[in-house]
Design a protein around this nucleic acid. Structure first.
Lengths: 241, 241
DNA sequence: GGAAAAATGTTGTATTATAAGTTGTTTGTT
DNA sequence: AACAAACAACTTATAATACAACATTTTTCC
């Protein structure tokens, strides 16, 4: 099953090191030749991989200079949601956007959802209520909101949600349970309230519950935020030049 | 000033032909060798250019098969806003998203804007009011809303707006004046009302005016929409297989 | 006619070579 | 010592060629 191409191997390798913070914004990557040696692939494959990274705005190349990790401020706009940039404040910004977009998508969803769609949502709620380990809740949370956005029948909206959740999965997953643990009960109830509003075709109520739900998540995160922020500062101070 | 790289040349060339509809979704591109011959560049450069197109999800490659233009349904999610897909209904969907995002950004903008920012917005309003030719209104419209989103101090939000306006510029610019012509007076007034609400730090009013503004644009477009839809249908019928 | 096999076309990777830009060092002059 | 020019080393950009891996089309054979 190792059907991964060489260029993809390079791509994944570098992406991983950027996301993990091994390569920091502004820093220069090893030369193509070096990377090729490290990964045991030819320079052609290295270039192909880096080309992709540069296309989505994770890095940029300077002829004769080298390849550099992009800083957040660069608005090569395809990097709207490059995973690297998601720390603390960034996460809050993202949730603000979700508050706006989710309330729209739940509204449209209530208008357009089919009976089959309602059944699918119901199943997710059901699984949320009968959950043993906490590990799976992220998946269910994701599925629920993506299903809602799907039945909004707005393709762009759905795609944006796909991106957002992909980013959340990559960056937040590890600390997710921690973040939402205090409201372990509410998180199921929040979703159930939204679901029932959709069932009753009450788009206004669904929207209100969605906003409430997200504001609760934001609040919960803000409590953790101070901790995380402190940790980050300490870490940075250690590595200060 | 011909600082365009070979790979960029390839990228632009293919992108243009895809956007213009020369290469249609599902269609196979000429082989790398052929493209190289056409553009007088080596296969390496062709591959680099296509690599980028593939990274942002405009095309996909099949080893041994060829390179194909992606269909809209493919949710290789970086192609959220690939210009090609913007026709009629898509435009309405996009405006729905704007209604949600612009009301958020104008709200945040009102909270966070600086005095210098207010002055910049004022200048744009001023130029809107003293406009001779219609040609420039799109630029002013764009600048106004991007400035608002910039002062929302939410980087993701701003980036999404950058994408949206880039798409609008590429796809809608030609027929823009036509679409908004009926409301030639209102379009200045709409923006001015928003601006003044921002000046008076009334975020709620600013939000309401923004929603009104966008709903007006949507309505105006819906009138044109029927015409455009008819044209599209006729065109499709001609090319029916 | 249908299936197997061969031929052809296409992308993926490797190798080698050269051009062109960047950076740091050395050298030479004052 | 200070400064500038020249140089060397490194890096990305492009090119040309070759072959591998996979896909499609054509031919061959039964």
């Amino acid at each position: 099953m190792k059907r991964k191409s060489k260029s993809q191997k390079v791509y994944d390798y570098i992406e991983e090191l950027i996301i993990s913070g091994e390569y920091k914004p502004g820093e220069r990557l090893p030369s193509e030749a070096q990377l090729g040696e490290t990964l045991k692939v030819s320079r052609v494959s290295v270039r192909a991989g880096i080309e992709k990274l540069s296309a989505i705005g994770l890095v940029h190349k300077k002829k004769g200079g080298g390849t550099y990790v992009n800083k957040p401020k660069n608005d090569n706009y395809l990097s709207v949601f490059t995973p690297t940039l998601l720390h603390n404040t960034d996460y809050l910004e993202l949730m603000e956007i979700r508050r706006a977009l989710d309330s729209l998508s739940v509204q449209l969803c209530t208008q357009n959802i089919t009976e089959a769609g309602v059944r699918k949502l119901g199943k997710i709620i059901d699984r949320m209520e009968h959950l043993e380990e906490d590990d799976d809740f992220f998946e269910l949370d994701k599925k629920f909101h993506l299903l809602v956005s799907k039945y909004s029948k707005n393709r762009f909206l759905h795609n944006i949600h796909l991106i957002i959740w992909d980013v959340l999965q990559k960056t937040l997953r590890p600390k997710y349970t921690k973040v939402t643990e205090p409201s372990a009960y509410d998180r199921v109830g929040s979703h159930k309230r939204i679901y029932e509003a959709i069932v009753h075709k009450d788009e206004n109520l669904a929207r209100i519950y969605t906003v409430h739900h997200l504001e609760k998540v934001i609040d919960t995160f803000k409590c953790e935020y101070n901790e995380a922020y402190q940790e980050a500062r300490e870490k940075n101070q250690k590595k200060e030049t």
